[in-house]
Amino acid sequence: MRDANVYSLKRAMPRMSWHPRNLYNLWRRSLGAKVEDTVFTRTNRSLYQQRWVSKALLRAYHGDYINEKIFKRWYLPQTLPDVRETLSNTSSSTESVNKWALREDAAQKEAKRLQNEREKGLAPVGSLMFREVERRIDVLLFRACFAHSVYEARRMVVHGDVLLNGKKHTNPNTRLAPGDMFSVDPKAIRFLQANAAQTAESESSEETPEDESAAETAEEDSRVVRIESSEDADGEASPASSKSNSSKPSTPLPKWAKPGSGVTPFHLPPYASPFLFIPAYLEPSFATCSAVYVRHPTARPGYSEIPTPYDADGEIVRAAWEWYTRVRPRMRSKSQLARMPENRQ
């Protein structure tokens, strides 16, 4: 990676990761002191600075490992969907036809739908500028909870631990098509390891400095000792507590994760459990360590399927789109089309 300290507490830029430092930065940007930095109604920054900050924050989360030039040319849409009420007259005529045909139930249903659309307002389509990024296989691996971070998901693809439609796939830049299925080698998923709930995420030296990773490892080791010496939920001492001289204590699996229970032993880190989610356009199967990309992400009034730490139609997204409208990609030549990342449509 270009930047070794991606989880910097000073910059506090949220990333696609369940690292505790990243979750702390996410909290600071959502509820903490860093919220005031992005309230542009009360700021002394110029319009150029507002757009630049918004673009930097969104790109830090949505594909910070993608080169800016490549993102603008291949992952940035030419335009966003139109959210004007172009079907209002058609809907009104449909309601009139239903009344004339004595279909009162259909007429009432159409009137209720129009009322709900008026109450919710326009669809938050600003977040759809990152729809092409969400189609990448490494991002989908992270969304399906098969990896602790998008950086780990990229390594899994490059190292050959991922199958796309039953064949080994080593290109993390591939954008999937609806119906594509990808599967992961269970040995490469740390969420399935027995000690994944107690050990901290050990990012590579390219992502975090060695002194920070050493401090986090020491803290998690002390946490493991406290967990192992505690009693289980039934009031009985765990078997690991009797082995105090063991250098690597192991916590017994819960009843739902024991062999023969029929459930995949999915061990979540305690700091990530409240935040984990799976988007609606993915259908994962943890029993087979696979997932199906069902459809492309969409947006409707009051709801956006693009996971983002910011308001899907807020000031940050709007300012970032205004920034990118000034730097739209030029016409793509044949030589440029030959270098396009794989797009399965």
Results as ranks from 00 to 15, higher is better:
Arg344Gln: 09
Thr86Asn: 12
Gly160Thr: 03
Arg328Val: 09
Val184Pro: 00
Pro124Val: 12
Pro309His: 14
Pro252Ala: 15
Asn173Trp: 10
Pro301Glu: 07
Gly63Ala: 04
Gly126Lys: 02
Val133Gly: 01
Ala56Asp: 12
Ser54Lys: 10
Ala215Leu: 11
Asp3Val: 09
Tyr151His: 11
Leu176Met: 10
Thr251Lys: 15
Pro259Ala: 10
Cys145Leu: 11
Thr308Gln: 05
Trp256Phe: 11
Glu104Asn: 13
Phe286Trp: 06
Val292Gln: 01
Ser17His: 06
Ala291Leu: 03
Ala287Asp: 07
Asp3Ile: 08
Arg84Ile: 07
Arg51Pro: 02
Asp82Ser: 15
Arg330Asp: 14
Asp311Leu: 08
Asp180Gln: 03
Glu207Gln: 04
Leu102Met: 14
Arg11Asp: 15
Leu87Glu: 15
Ala237Tyr: 13
Ser127Asn: 05
Thr41Val: 08
Lys55Cys: 05
Glu305Cys: 06
Pro178Ser: 09
Ser8Pro: 04
His159Lys: 05
Ala33Arg: 08
Glu228Met: 15
Arg175Trp: 03
Phe286Gln: 00
Arg339Asn: 13
Met181Asp: 00
Ser229Gln: 14
Glu132Trp: 05
Arg318Ala: 10
Asp221Pro: 01
Glu305Gly: 07
Leu140Asp: 01
Asp234Gln: 08
Val292Pro: 01
Tyr24Phe: 14
Ala312Gln: 12
Asp211Val: 13
Tyr310Leu: 13
Glu36Cys: 07
Leu337Cys: 13
Ala291Cys: 15
Leu337Phe: 02
Glu119Gly: 04
Glu119Gln: 12
Arg330Ile: 12
Ser246Gln: 12
Leu57Gly: 01
Val294Cys: 06
Arg175Leu: 05
Tyr7His: 11
Thr170Trp: 02
Ser244Pro: 04
Val225Phe: 14
Ala299Asp: 13
Ser88Glu: 12
Arg223Ala: 09
Leu9Ser: 13
Pro329Met: 05
Arg59Glu: 09
Asp211Lys: 05
Gly314Pro: 03
Gly314Arg: 04
Asn5Glu: 09
Glu212Pro: 00
Val327Arg: 06
Thr251Glu: 02
Leu253Ala: 15
Asp185Tyr: 00
Ser246Asp: 15
Arg2Asn: 09
Arg175Ser: 07
Lys34Pro: 01
Ala287Cys: 05
Ser127Val: 06
His148Ile: 00
Arg11Ala: 14
Ala299Ile: 12
Tyr24Val: 07
Thr41Cys: 10
Thr170Gln: 15
Ser242His: 10
Lys243Asp: 12
Pro81Val: 11
Lys109Leu: 13
Leu164Asp: 00
Thr325Phe: 03
Thr288Val: 00
Thr86Ile: 12
Tyr310Pro: 04
Pro329His: 13
Ile137Thr: 06
Leu268Asp: 01
Ser290Thr: 11
His62Gly: 07
Gly260His: 08
Thr288Ala: 00
Asp234Ser: 09
Ala111Gln: 12
Ser229Met: 15
